[in-house]
Design a protein around this nucleic acid. Sequence first.
RNA 1: GUGGAUGUAGCUCAGACGGCUAGAGCACCAGGUUGUGGCCCUGGGGGUCGCGGGUUCAAGUCCCGUCAUUCACCCCA
Length: 426
Amino acid sequence: MLKAPRGTQDILPPESSQWVYLESVLRDVCRRYNYHEIRTPTFEQSELFSRTVGEATDIVEKEMYTFKDKTGRDMALRPEMTASVARAFVEHGMASGPLPRKFFYMGSMYRYERPQAGRYREHRQFGVEVLGSDSPYSDVEVIVLAMDAAGALGLTGTQLVLNSIGCPTCRAAYRSRLIDHLKVRVNELCPDCQSRLERNPLRVLDCKKDACKAVTSGAPGMLDHLCPECRLHWGEMTRLLAAQGIDFTVDSSLVRGLDYYTRTVFELKWPPLGAQNAILGGGRYDGLVEEIGGPRVPGVGFAMGMERMLMALAKGSRPIGADAGIDVFVIGMKGADSLASEKAFALVRSLRQSGLSCEFDPLQRSMKAQMKQADRANAKFVAIIGDEEAKNGIVTVRCMGEGWQKTVGLDHVVSFVCEEVARLGK
RNA sequence: GUGGAUGUAGCUCAGACGGCUAGAGCACCAGGUUGUGGCCCUGGGGGUCGCGGGUUCAAGUCCCGUCAUUCACCCCA
């Protein structure tokens, strides 16, 4: 049997309505923050990601879905969105327009990983990007946007974790200092960390192995080695966050897995989710636009794992997205001729054109069977047209909730039902 | 990529030591009411027991492989 590829999933009704709900809440938050939607291609030249995300990162090294197109160009399904947004920003000369530009996006990302709960090969992200502002206010704006989005969705119990990884200059200095410190006891580190030592020493800091923790416990912290500019930015940003009443914890071991980050990095965690408990993550990327050949334009943003958010909402606070029922179910009884059925079908269309949600049974089953469907569809009203009604130009209207029914002339049944639906709605 | 657990109907699950036509609840369809839902009763449809090998007179049950899901590592959203 044919199955959906590993790590992918079908989103079926009624769960799909939860996605619609999630998307609508996020869009409304973005409207209030004046962020505008950007849509970019699902695949890009592979080079875009190897240059920005980083040649030596797991994402580029072993998780990208790459392929050659018919002319032999190296392409990749996008593993993340920030590089694409930056590319579009440069390609369309937005740097010479008003700055900053503020974008949001929603879409599928692709990474060849071992699937587990909260981690998929195709997953959907919502995210925002601000390009053209190096102000700590922008860092704080995207963070409070994230917090407000979580709040608007009713998610409680999240933890905001922050760190600064400095700029290329102070990070390089810190890096060699850290390597020097770790080298002294290199043989006490786990094999993973030994190989990480030269490639990505910051990662050694958040290794969970006790042996490594012992070695790193006295290690210097990045925050103590920021250059004056980075230290100022960090200080301002944390001060502004605190002034907004945002609780956060500083975690000097927080390192993001993409090379383009500078200064601020953060994650919003929701512990009950288990191993994959970061609902969203992001940070500042002041060198990214330049890296892809654009001007010096700073940026900051985050990405939210939408599946993870839905998992958290389902597991936590309150259920969402219950589908409301339909307004009217029209029953057309199959009689000696098809007159009643056809009149019923015409009525369905009129009701729909008038703005009501309406359903009928194309299989023209028995009255009982159709009543059952109406009940299952959670219909407020049932309109019945059988031989008698068709002949006399009338319709029997039944209110499912209140139990009554009456006959109404076919020519004013639409307005009658509209009024009744409005009455129930109050 | 590494390790553990799991895989029987659309869904949730039963199927002691291998042994007749593989079951239940829910869902679905029909009938009980010749034109009236929710409750109830009766009946019905639906399963290559994830897939492929092997052991055996006999495999849903045991063995191997494989695919998928899941938990953790890793990584990240």
